[in-house]
Simulated scan of single mutants.
Amino acid sequence: MVHVLSSRTLLRPTDPERSRDFYQRQLGLAVYREFGTGPERGTVYFLGGGFLEVSGRSETPPSPAVRLWLQVADLAETHRELLERGVEIVRPPLKEPWGLVEMWIADPDGVPIVLVEVPADHPLRHRPGI
């Protein structure tokens, strides 16, 4: 068994400064650490139980198979805050057939970001048999 101590998702944006502005100013993620210098320096953001690292540069956007799933406590409040910060909402909050409330946005390179609220009565909030 691999004993994982920490994890992070790595993104190589086409425009690192634009992506850092999005994740830090518009999305409001807190910085965990920064490293290197210049426009392609690395910035690591807190992402719940993991981290998101924006570093380096890519000539092409990430694969459409890459997506971020971020759980928030109050999606209505998150929706309001993101609108105030000028974030384009790809799809407003909607309760899905599986019971989660989801809203979709995208980062500057088009990486889909699903913001999710788990309602109080959803099975994800409860551990059967406990």
Rank of each mutant, 00 (worst) to 15 (best):
V66H: 12
T60D: 11
P39I: 02
P64K: 13
W104K: 14
A73C: 00
R67F: 01
D74L: 07
L75D: 08
Y45D: 02
I105K: 11
G49E: 13
A106N: 06
W69N: 09
P62D: 14
T78I: 02
I113A: 06
G99K: 07
A73S: 03
W98Q: 02
E81P: 04
V116N: 03
P112Y: 00
P61W: 03
E96C: 03
G48I: 03
V111R: 01
P61D: 03
M103E: 07
V44I: 08
Q71P: 00
G42V: 12
K95I: 09
R80N: 04
L47Y: 06
Y45E: 02
G49R: 13
R80S: 09
E77H: 11
V54A: 04
L47T: 05
A65R: 12
V54N: 08
I105A: 07
A65E: 10
E77Y: 07
R67G: 09
R67C: 04
E59P: 08
T60K: 07
T37D: 12
V116H: 00
P108S: 01
L75P: 01
G86Q: 14
M103F: 01
I89K: 05
F46A: 11
P39L: 03
E40N: 14
S58F: 11
P108I: 05
P97A: 06
T37P: 05
V66K: 09
E77P: 01
P64N: 06
E53P: 12
P97D: 04
Y45N: 01
G56C: 15
R67K: 08
R80M: 00
W69V: 13
V111T: 09
S58V: 09
T43C: 15
H79C: 06
L83V: 15
F51L: 15
L82H: 05
W104T: 14
G56F: 15
E117D: 10
